[in-house]
Amino acid sequence: MDMMSMVSSILAAQAGNTQQQIATTFLSANASAEKSAVQTLLGTGTPSLANVAAGIGGNINVTA
């Protein structure tokens, strides 16, 4: 194997490794988004009061 073939194969391997790392990052982010969507649809996970009116979800005085 001549020198240019070796250099070319090393560069191709490095490019393939970079592409694999990027694909893994995107796959992980996609899986996290899907998990969040499923939890929202099922009503599980941490409940959020972000989309309710002021005063909703506060303490109620039941001694009156």
Score class of each variant (00 low, 15 high):
P47V: 04
M6H: 06
P47H: 04
I56P: 00
M6D: 05
A54N: 11
G58N: 13
I10N: 01
T46E: 14
V38D: 01
G55W: 02
S32L: 15
M4D: 13
T25Y: 14
A64Q: 13
G55V: 02
A53I: 06
A23G: 04
N30E: 12
G43E: 05
A23L: 09
S28T: 15
V62P: 00
T44D: 01
T46C: 05
M4C: 03
A64P: 11
I56T: 13
Q20E: 12
S8E: 06
G45Y: 01
L41N: 05
S28H: 10
S5V: 06
T63E: 10
P47M: 02
A31V: 07
T46Y: 07
A53W: 02
M6G: 04
L11T: 07
S48H: 04
V7E: 05
S32R: 10
E34D: 09
G58E: 11
N61I: 05
M4I: 12
I10M: 05
E34P: 01
A54F: 02
T25R: 15
T25K: 12
A33F: 05
S32H: 10
S5H: 06
N59W: 04
M4K: 13
L27V: 08
L27W: 07
L11F: 06
S36P: 00
A15L: 14
G45W: 01
L11V: 05
S32K: 13
I22L: 13
M4G: 09
T24A: 15
A31C: 08
A12F: 07
N17T: 06
G57S: 01
I56S: 06
